[in-house]
């Protein structure tokens, strides 16, 4: 009976315990934490299967909002609306509180040397995490040559035409995959 009374809060606490620390290390945004997030959500806590994680990732990209909204959807899977709200707060609030503190200091010391060093020192970490996130998603999706090819092609397209609307590119990905699946082999 004790278990029962705890059961509604335990998943919410677990969501906070997993997501809030990630909020503070997601340098470069959501993609930086996708690899460890899938490890926690799929393998450690078994909130969802690898297949479901990929589906949530895709839905989060198609729906409006930052890619980190993936956390919102994981929260929804774990505990419906309370889970979605708690997960959203857990993933956005810690980084936002840090950000407002730094914002206030930042404008005061703009142009100082340490200001530039901080930016230069953190940027390559964010870049490395971006690539690690890409590898994690591909591994998870069991992406064949088609998936890798499309991902790299999209990166190339956007490098050539940076103003291409991202929504258009996501649609292109869907069309290519559906076309390949629909053609009898």
């Amino acid at each position: 009976m004790d278990d029962h009374s705890n059961s509604s809060f335990a998943p919410l606490m677990a969501l906070i315990a997993v997501l809030a620390p990630f909020s503070l290390v997601a340098i470069g945004g959501g993609p930086a934490i996708f690899a460890p997030l899938q490890h926690q959500a799929v393998e450690v806590h078994r909130w969802l299967t690898a297949r479901e994680f990929i589906e949530l990732f895709a839905v989060a990209r198609v729906a409006p909002g930052p890619g980190s909204m993936l956390a919102t959807l994981i929260g929804w899977k774990v505990a419906a609306w309370p889970g979605a709200v708690v997960a959203t707060l857990a993933i956005f609030l810690p980084s936002s509180i840090l950000c407002i503190g730094v914002s206030r200091v930042w404008s005061r010391y703009r142009g100082r040397a340490w200001h530039q060093a901080l930016e230069d020192g953190l940027a390559p970490i964010g870049t490395g995490l971006m690539f690690a996130g890409a590898v994690a998603i591909f591994k998870l999706a069991n992406a064949g040559p088609l998936g890798w090819g499309l991902g790299i092609a999209v990166a190339g397209l956007l490098t050539l035409w940076p103003k291409l609307h991202p929504f258009l590119v996501l649609g292109l990905g869907a069309v290519v995959f559906v076309a390949v699946a629909a053609v009898p082999h």
Partner: peptide
């Protein structure tokens, strides 16, 4: 709808492409 799985995989792969593109932008400077 069976083809929806393919569509979702396609969106996910393209979305990874967006991230790779961001990584490239960073890497060029790094």
């Amino acid at each position: 709808i069976s083809l929806l799985h393919a569509a979702v995989d396609g969106v996910a792969a393209a979305a990874v492409g967006l991230n790779i593109r961001l990584g490239i932008v960073g890497a060029v400077r790094v």
